[in-house]
Simulated assay, not measured.
Amino acid sequence: MTQTTQSYYENLPRVTEFEVLADPACYAPLPDDWVVGVADIVGSTQEIARGRYKTVNTVGAAVISAQLNAAELLRLPYVFGGDGAGFAVWPEQRGAAENALDAVRRWARREFDIELRAAMVTVGEIRAAGHDIRVARYAPAEGVDYAMFSGGGVAWAEDQMKSGALRLPEDGMPDKEPDLSGLSCRWSNLEAKNGAILSLVIKPGVGVSVRAFAKVSRSVIAASDGSGRGGHPVPRQGPNFRFPPVGLSLEAHVSHGARPVWVQKLALLGANLMIWALFRFNIRLGNFSPQNYREEVGHNADFRKFDDGLKMTLDCDAEAQKRIEAVLRAAADKGLIRYGMHAQDEALMTCLVPSATDNTHMHFVDGAAGGYARAAEQLR
């Protein structure tokens, strides 16, 4: 196979230690004919003010869910950003990716009255504009891995989309349903155990080398590791599940299809009552072990990432927060970084679960009161 086929990303090595990913040598250039997609919610600040950040997260995760299902769950690089997402696909997948992205945009508008900006651009076009896009695979656990991006290419595509220079056109066809199989929002919010849930967005300063930014990133990661778990916001034993789940209405909008939403809510109530009983009484069902699954959630969680910068959702005590802020202020004073930070009482998770009986389930973690979106506002 050539480098332009689907296997390119699948063949990249999986890195198991997060701090190693600060090293630019971990990243490989995506082929020129691959296609990058970006999407974000218009007016996410207003949606947060209305108390709809879980909805915002669900729409952001829906972009990824639709792409994975359109690719028949083949491996592709993607990154979750709270109020949006980015991804890349091989050239033969472009048509299916555009259709899936447009379908999510229509679905978000129809189900939630949310406008989703969307754009797609080739890697070659990104490089012609003076930027690069490099990718690595981070494997926090055996069954999952998450893409890490560097080079500024995804950030450039997002900026071009927000300015209106790049836009995925709507095809004028009747509304089509995105395939969001596996997208769920059932877990209870994660309360801060150490003091506060801290959302961080850190970007390199203008003209700062990748190695200089890597040095700052390592210092931030080290400062966050006071508890020995790197500020991991998901408890070792996994999150709690209550009945009815907090995301019941959202999941009904995700999965109702041709059914009325209220009918789907009733169906989900019955299914979630059974799930609650399994977790409450630790009942095994075939190959499904509630205890093992809950523990895997923490191992599989995506709570920190390199996305043309560094993003982290951390459970921090006051001392860890002081250490982190000291590192950030010193680096910002030198012009090495720009950063935003937002503290809140809880984190939330949005999940992609291709199968509940194996360990490939994915869990995107963000602050529950604005998280990455609030932190990113401070970059401006």
Rank of each mutant, 00 (worst) to 15 (best):
T4Q: 12
Q6K: 11
Q6I: 13
S7K: 13
Y8V: 11
R14W: 00
V15T: 10
T16N: 04
E17S: 07
F18R: 01
V20Y: 02
A22V: 00
A25Q: 08
A28H: 11
A28K: 06
L30K: 07
D32V: 03
D32Y: 10
D33Q: 08
G37N: 05
G37P: 05
I41V: 14
I41R: 04
V42K: 15
G43Y: 12
S44C: 06
T45N: 13
T45L: 09
E47R: 06
I48E: 13
A49Y: 04
A49P: 00
G51F: 08
V59S: 11
V59F: 12
A61F: 11
A62M: 05
E72D: 15
V79F: 11
F80K: 07
G82P: 10
A85M: 03
W90A: 14
R94Y: 04
G95C: 01
D102I: 09
W107P: 10
A108E: 10
R109E: 15
I114E: 08
L116Q: 12
R117F: 11
R117L: 13
M120S: 14
R127Q: 10
A128N: 07
R134T: 09
Y138H: 15
Y138V: 02
Y138F: 15
D145C: 15
Y146I: 06
A147K: 05
A147E: 06
M148P: 02
F149S: 00
G152I: 00
M161A: 09
K162H: 09
L166S: 07
M173N: 10
L180M: 04
C185I: 15
G195H: 02
A196T: 13
I202G: 04
V206M: 14
G207E: 01
V208A: 01
V210A: 12
A222M: 00
A222Q: 14
G226S: 13
S227N: 14
S227Y: 04
G230Y: 10
P235C: 04
G238N: 02
G238W: 01
P239L: 11
P239S: 13
R242E: 06
P245G: 08
G247T: 03
S249I: 01
L250Y: 09
A252D: 03
H253T: 02
V254L: 11
G257E: 13
R259E: 15
V261A: 10
A267N: 01
L269N: 08
L269R: 13
A271F: 09
N272D: 14
L273H: 10
L273P: 01
L273S: 14
L278G: 00
F279D: 10
F279N: 09
F279H: 15
R280D: 07
R280K: 13
F281G: 04
F281A: 11
R284I: 00
E295N: 01
E295I: 08
E296R: 15
V297M: 07
V297Y: 07
H299C: 06
D307C: 01
G309T: 08
L310H: 03
M312P: 00
M312N: 00
L314D: 04
E319Y: 05
Q321I: 06
K322W: 03
I324C: 07
E325F: 02
A326G: 06
A330V: 08
A331K: 04
G335H: 05
R338C: 05
G340A: 01
A343T: 11
P354W: 09
T360K: 15
T360A: 14
F364M: 09
A375F: 07
R380Q: 14
